[in-house]
Design a protein around this nucleic acid. Structure first.
Length: 316
DNA sequence: GCGTCCAGGTCTACC
DNA sequence: GGTAGACCTGGACGC
């Protein structure tokens, strides 16, 4: 599909703001969709607006203290006024442009774990993506080492993703909920190696197609209600709901709880699952409402923390 | 090579 | 309400 209509808008996020670290996380996760193109500070990516796909070209023309992002939106048909408003609203959410993180920076500068991290990744934001891609990510992360999760995600994109071309670039999107809802469980198991997760992912996609609150609607709910709503979906438990929820959480799992156990208590644990609650309590005590952002900062600076703590967290 | 174990959770049956 | 066991798959490891 080629997108040739262009609409340009400018976003001015609340400082401090790092466009680069927000859209290209050091940990390597894509911003909106896999196989985004990033060249010389310019990002080409894509998203869905209802049943339509729009291409996005983003470039920072600002600084940490005076951030400014120029966004070119590419579509097949000319965008209506409502669609333009919707895409600007979405872009602000994706870029986390309206969050004031000065309180976090102040806290982090005095925190023994975060002070180096916040200096290295200053202005990085936790982008809130769309609902189905987040659920897809959470489902493939369950009970699998990262290489296996990556394999499942790659195969899902290969067999069910959509490709768009615009501005001379080619971008591949996550599969839509509709395409997974229509796929057979057998195909999802065989082609994408999803195993037992195939039934769950199809059921999730079907729930979304039938009608389920989107990210904007979940964002205006209380954190507890949003989480409870997400946990109504098949195969979405406490941990996955924490990853997906637009409200900042501290979604510790067996992998991250090992890392945080060392950072908090100075020693490794042989029972990472067993210390998840303890680690979450300590995060709440130290970082309070900023625990969600602290979680993102730490996991994106494992290299820096490895040097400082003398433990190779990147090998966990 | 081959068998076994386990991993970045969730659900369900059973007590 | 709490808890053990099953669930796909593939890489790591021991033999």
């Amino acid at each position: 599909m080629t997108l040739s209509n262009r609409y340009t808008t400018t976003i001015k996020p609340i400082p401090p703001y790092s466009f680069e670290y927000t859209v290209r996380k050091p940990a390597g996760w894509p911003w909106l969709t896999p196989e985004e193109v990033y060249e010389n500070g310019v990002l080409w990516t894509a998203t869905r607006i209802g049943a339509s796909i729009v291409g996005l070209k983003l470039k920072s023309t600002g600084t940490l203290k005076q951030p400014c992002v120029i966004c070119d939106v590419f579509s097949r048909e000319r965008l209506t006024k409502n669609q333009r408003l919707m895409i600007v609203h979405r872009l602000r959410r994706y870029l986390d442009a309206d969050e004031d993180i000065r309180g976090f920076c102040q806290l982090a500068r005095k925190d023994p774990i975060l002070k180096g991290v916040v200096r290295r990744l200053c202005g990085m934001r936790d982008a809130v993506s769309d609902l189905f891609p987040s659920l897809l990510l959470a489902t493939t992360l369950q009970l699998a080492p990262i290489t296996r999760s990556q394999q499942m995600m790659d195969l899902l994109v290969k067999h069910y993703g959509d490709t768009v071309c615009f501005d001379g670039k080619r971008v591949v999107l996550w599969p839509s909920a509709e395409s997974i809802a229509e796929a057979s469980v057998r195909d999802l198991q065989r082609k994408c190696k999803l195993g037992y997760r195939a039934k769950n992912l199809k059921a999730i996609a079907q729930s979304l197609v039938k009608g389920f609150p989107d990210m904007e609607e979940l964002a205006v709910m209380t954190p507890e209600d949003a989480k409870a709503k997400l946990m109504e979906l098949r195969g979405i438990g406490e941990y996955s709901a924490g990853i997906v929820s637009p409200h900042p959480e501290f979604p510790a799992d067996s992998w991250s709880s090992r890392i945080f156990h060392i950072l908090f208590f100075g020693r490794n644990t042989k029972v990472p699952k067993g210390v998840i609650g303890k680690v979450q309590q300590e995060a709440e005590r130290r970082w309070g409402t900023w625990k969600g952002l602290a979680f993102i900062y730490v996991l994106n600076d494992l290299r820096g923390l490895s040097k400082r703590f003398g433990v190779d967290f990147t090998s966990f």
